[in-house]
């Protein structure tokens, strides 16, 4: 999981063009500057591209819902990659 989080952190840094981003599980859209709906889409596309996974239609937007955070993205990724 830690390795996955580190890889995800790289993608976040690339997408938000911010080398300072340090991901923690409890972080949400409010904790990262510029994480609006447009950037969310860019983030999801980049995660799919860099990890070689595909999110279901519902997951694309659900990852921004209340109660979702970086931790839920990491576990969803782990599940998709069969590392859960």
């Amino acid at each position: 999981m830690d390795e996955l989080r580190a890889q995800l952190q790289e993608v976040f840094r690339e997408v938000f063009d911010d080398e300072e981003i340090a991901l923690r599980d409890e972080m949400t859209g409010n904790d990262i500057e510029g994480w609006d709906s447009l950037m969310h889409l860019n983030l999801i596309i980049a995660v799919e591209s860099r990890f070689g996974v595909k999110f279901a239609t519902s997951e694309i937007s659900n990852l921004r819902n209340d109660g979702e955070n970086v931790g839920s993205m990491v576990s969803l990724l782990a599940k998709k990659l069969g590392r859960g």
């Binding site: 889409l41 596309i45 799919e48 591209s49 595909k54 999110f55 279901a56 239609t57 694309i60 937007s61």
Partner: peptide
């Protein structure tokens, strides 16, 4: 079509 349904993108993002 996932990205059309969710975000009205015209084709696969890549």
């Amino acid at each position: 079509t996932r990205y059309y349904f969710e975000a009205k993108l015209p084709c696969a993002p890549e």
